[in-house]
Amino acid sequence: MYRFLRLPILLVGLFMAVSCYAVNDSQPTLTTEDDLGPQVAQPIEFPHYRHAGNRNTVDPTNSDPTKGGMEINCQYCHTYARRSLTAGIPPLQKCIGCHQNIPSVRDKPRIVELFKYWDAKKAVPWKKVHDLPDFVRFTHERHIKRFIEQQGRPVQEVCGYCHGQVKEMVTARRQKPITMGWCVSCHMKEHVVAAKADIPEGGTPIGKQAYWYTFQKPAETKNAAGELTAKGPNDCWLCHK
């Protein structure tokens, strides 16, 4: 009786057994073309590549000699990133503060538009590009502290982990999925703990503040170069609120 069920049950059982092991090894898929966010129309077509892009002399691959970037630090305008949850949009004063001293571009259509807002004493109604759900608490501050201030990695590289190559864009567009699985794919990686040489006790302290992915306290892990590594937090309540 029910002999015809034997094979399906066997197959289902095999599938479940295999997937139990497969889950341990699988990594979430990397960023694909589909993860591109929508092109958000901004009130002024802000050229990120012109502000943050590489300078021509430094970067010979930039074909147009007149279109080199200024290599401005991301944190010069998005100044709240290093001290709060949000990276923030700079006030109009910051744009004008530079641009009133740059007469060469003053008659360009975008700059004319910018000064219209300034003269009307109105803020530019920028649209949000990276919008997280309300139940997520993402802190820019912690990531900036960890990777830029404690490990001294280049600012544009660190911002690019989540925001992509903004320095090559005109108006910013979401390049990464910014989903939970994508966040976790990075948090589950072993990251080097060591701080920059001139910071005596920087980096993420392992041991005292290690994050546990199993029920046992993890042993210290080291990478091929012998450096101490640790995973990012996996506690639900660190990101969900």
Binding site: C20, Y21, V23, N24, K208, Q209, W212, T214, F215, Q216
Partner: peptide, 27 residues
């Protein structure tokens, strides 16, 4: 949490109050 992890550490799953290898540290 995978099924293998769950089965291997079943005793720990029920009681998550601190014991020697799971101290509350630093908070």
């Amino acid at each position: 949490m995978t099924a293998t992890n769950l089965l291997e550490n079943w005793a720990s799953v029920r009681h998550f109050h601190p014991i020697d290898d799971k101290p509350h540290d630093p908070y």
